[in-house]
Design a protein around this nucleic acid. Sequence first.
DNA 1: GAATATGCCAACCGATCGGTTGGTAAATTT
DNA 2: AAATTTACCAACCGATCGGTTGGCATATTC
Lengths: 200, 200
Amino acid sequence: MPVQKIEKVDFLLRCWEVFNRQGYHNTSMQDLAKATGLQKAGLYHHYPTKQLLMESVLDFAMQRFRSYVLAVAADTSLPVEQRFEKMLRRQRRLAMLQRQGCFFANIALETGRDEIFNKMLLLAMEEWTVSLSSLYADRFEEADAVMEARRVIMEYEGAVVFYKISGNPQYLEDFVTRATKAFRAVPSIQHIHHHTSIGI
Amino acid sequence: MPVQKIEKVDFLLRCWEVFNRQGYHNTSMQDLAKATGLQKAGLYHHYPTKQLLMESVLDFAMQRFRSYVLAVAADTSLPVEQRFEKMLRRQRRLAMLQRQGCFFANIALETGRDEIFNKMLLLAMEEWTVSLSSLYADRFEEADAVMEARRVIMEYEGAVVFYKISGNPQYLEDFVTRATKAFRAVPSIQHIHHHTSIGI
DNA sequence: GAATATGCCAACCGATCGGTTGGTAAATTT
DNA sequence: AAATTTACCAACCGATCGGTTGGCATATTC
């Protein structure tokens, strides 16, 4: 077989950039061809439809989100408050990349009623929720931790809406400040049952 | 001039329904023609471009939102806690109409980077914020009231994202419950300076 | 080194896109 | 009642849409 013109990771990254910038319906296969250096028929050699290509891109986006944002929650070398803030800061940085906002929310609101990507999108949002909620583990019982994590994500998505139509990053910064402060304000109960502190 | 086939209010309402259901880019002038009973050229008789038609629809949507949701905040016949809850319930009901979510947020995330409707959208969001913040007037000083109102709207927009991809209205109901409870929990300071309660 | 599998593209398909043209018919103005 | 204004439409425009076809060229398999 002949040489590939573009690596799969590069290919998906470029498609992601275009979809994130222009949305699903407003992105044509021609646009994706130009962005990846292929011709339209070249795309159809790898993906039978635009929708299936998008599913691969969503999958790819989730992997990257996992390793860039969600991974922070599992980094036990950092105290939990710092992990919390670091996660939110990374979310924020993602949203500000070329003022694209949150890829998942963009696609969710644009295609939600079509039911074509909802399964993947909901999975992504729930994984995000679980990941963030793990940081609340020593402050709330699990159900409340999940609830609170979801609430913070909701607030983030709303902040992104304000940011996207205003271009003003202050909405996102205020969100990070507010959420982090609230997180620190919740009393930790961890040391009662699994922080060995001094001796015994 | 000949008789009109459709009243302007009906016309805008039907266009709003289509745009809200399908989004901006995924709605064609043909779709709008079919929904309003006109032909495509008939639309162009009233609006020179799709974008200007959309601006009229956004304007119309804001008027309706104002009279259906924001008006509740000004209804002084109800105690402030009830006005707060009633507003949120009406927002929720709007979002659940055919699972469309929030029209403003839908268009915001879809077209935000295009900068074509941002001015109107930001105006709408800020008017909403001010309206909701008026209910906090006796609990916070103004800057904090605005901040808190905006935070609640952000949380609502996030709840809509979860609702839209899941179809589960629980996300919205939980939001209303949570926000209302939090509102009631904030101590009112109004009676100190302008509630005459008993005598004097 | 012949056969095969693969990556890719030029050219094409019918359908639809946003928008235009030239006109008809009815209500209003004069 | 003539002139004008208005609401609207059938038919059309070039461009672009998602997707298809047939084939070329290269790397691998045998």
